[in-house]
Design a protein around this nucleic acid. Structure first.
Lengths: 345, 345
DNA sequence: CTCTATTCTTAACACGTGTAAAAACGTCTT
DNA sequence: AAGACGTTTTTACACGTGTTAAGAATAGAG
């Protein structure tokens, strides 16, 4: 049962009687070798245990066929969906994805970038950490690799390609909806862990002013550690609801995870947010988090087109690494959000 | 501003006046080099852009310092928590984690295993895909690497280390609790995507028989594609509730995601699951999914000790790769679940 | 100042595969 | 049978770093 283990192409060449360069070509692209040889090699490999050494192959090829992806954290289904869509798109294009998670730590993010450089990845896609991440890391990657930022965009960074949601549009859309069907919406901010947090605040204010309404923002000061969005939404609204504030308001949460905390706060105070009764409490979110449709009540939100963002990021990356050094001008792709009207607002 | 880019140690050696072998030792372990040289190298590296080539270093070292991790899917916070705890544990021990996601596809899982072998990872931790995954993949990894399975354990696989939750204990715990505070619990199964699905069913039946109660299992036939646990729970209970079945039962869901769907089904039918009223509908889950505490009502469940499982898996792996070929006997570590009594049951 | 221990440099080979050039082989056409 | 063409083999060098052996340089102790 135990096939003999073979560790080098040289040995394999001796074992199955095909020259090493032919084997090398076979493993890179079987069509580069005549059918008769392919057959001989196939049969040989069945009798023997051999895998080409990953490092040795990558070291000598001009292209490694790998793209590096960095996401800020894993415990968020939004990012895992994004990651999945990127992996699928990359797989379709024949690339291998190496994922690194920065765990909300700029140092880890910087180290991951170095790893990508030292691995000669063909390109890199990064979802930035946030305000406290080191912009030099992105500039460095952008200067040395085909590089695309996604999801959230540092304000003070120029010349870097970006793919994400148009928050002016998406946040404006739901702000307008809330203003139309209920009272003027209040914005429940999220901890400013990334640049989208602020972008959505700004978009909300702009839309409110356009509608001639007075913007109100609550929950800016983070009460919790980063990344605990639900706990943040719960804590902020629990305080307000305890004082009787906002119990009849339309509340637009900066994202669905905050909104889930908000729904919990409402339930805790016996409030039933919903669009049915005019004038009552309404709660809405942003992102269309996978669980939002199962919340009680189901959560009204704006869906980000995650699949399109992942696909576009990979497409743009591949476009860049094809033209090699032509350094085309900066591309910024902003996808529209889609309103998902459910029961909560 | 732009430092000169240096691509090899040879060039670096010439540029900063330190011999190549000394540089090699410096990058592997700076303490292997005298303080004066360390200082000279440090200063040199500040004036120059250089990163050792990842592949060339890994190819020649006997140990790569990498451990491979395979998880079945990303869009589940249970697995991302597990992954995070493994990454933390590995980082503490000085190892780099390479993650691959099998996307519920045995072929991708097998390919990931091959990749790990060809990368000469020092060890591998795998959360199995499920019934349809190829056991030979695990046997192969186990024969060639320090290897640990986690989370879910194939029944017909021997001699492989395992770390996971003791489902007899955990499921027994909540079954007993439900039986004590309410009517005899019904078990809402989950699609049998992994071995835990069946283990929990069996554990439920065993405990029920121990308690002298009649076990009832519903939702075994999956109505949905794999991985859509919430939709499964919702669909199954929606059917039953529509007919008036189980509306006053204690329902133990195979995991929290199923339970979230179950809560949604209850809400849809105007039912309010909870422990307050005797004799009414109760819903409980398993896992302590991160969002369970924010559900409406908050979800009663059994917490898996994810942090301990990740840590134990890494510990065991490191233990194995220290003793190298001593092939110690099989180790099976089962962690206890902890009851989390909340509002839903 | 010499002796010894440490650390460094030099030189060389190793790892496993990519790749190029030239020679050898096979098959098909004429 | 000769020629043309495509494929394979042979041979050799390349990639960037690990690693070793021998000798040179340096430091500290006496």
């Amino acid at each position: 049962m135990a096939k003999p283990e073979i560790h080098t192409m040289e040995e394999l060449s001796a074992a199955i009687g095909v020259s090493r360069p032919t084997l090398s070509r076979y493993f890179q692209d079987p069509t580069k070798v005549s059918k008769s040889s392919v057959e001989r090699i196939r049969r040989g490999l069945e009798r023997v245990e051999y895998i080409p050494n990953f490092f040795a192959t990558r070291m000598n090829r001009k292209t490694t066929g790998m793209i590096g992806v960095i996401i800020p954290y894993l415990n968020d289904l939004f990012f895992t969906r994004l990651l999945e869509s990127i992996e699928r798109a990359a797989m379709r294009a024949g690339y291998t994805v190496i994922t690194q998670c920065s765990h909300s730590d700029p140092e880890i993010e910087a180290r991951a970038a170095e790893t990508f450089l030292s691995m000669n990845v063909d390109g890199a896609v990064v979802a930035p950490l946030g305000n406290h991440s080191d912009l030099k890391v992105y500039e460095r990657l952008n200067a040395r690799l085909p590089f695309v930022l996604m999801d959230s965009r540092p304000a003070r960074l120029s010349g870097v390609d970006f793919v994400g949601t148009d928050h002016i549009q998406s946040t404006g859309l739901i702000t307008e909806y809330l203003g139309r069907v209920g009272g003027p919406p209040v914005f429940l901010a999220m901890p400013r862990v990334n640049f989208n947090a602020l972008e959505r605040e700004v978009a909300y204010i702009a839309k409110m002013e356009e509608l001639g309404l007075e913007p109100t923002i609550i929950g800016v000061d983070p009460l919790n550690a980063e990344g605990h969005f639900e706990a943040h939404g719960l804590a902020v609204l629990d305080r307000y609801f305890s004082k009787g504030d906002f119990i009849n308001s339309s509340i637009l949460c900066a994202n669905d995870r905050v909104a889930i905390g908000a729904l919990r706060a409402a339930a805790h105070h016996g409030l039933e947010p919903g669009s049915l009764r005019r004038g009552g409490l309404r709660i809405a979110g942003h992102d269309d988090y996978p669980l939002s449709q199962f919340m009680i009540p189901t959560l009204t939100t704006v869906a980000q087109n995650v699949e399109a963002i992942g696909q576009a990021a990979v497409d743009r990356l591949i476009e860049k690494l094809r033209v090699e050094k032509f350094q085309a001008n900066q591309t910024v792709q902003l996808m529209d959000g889609v309103l998902k009207v459910r029961d909560s607002a």
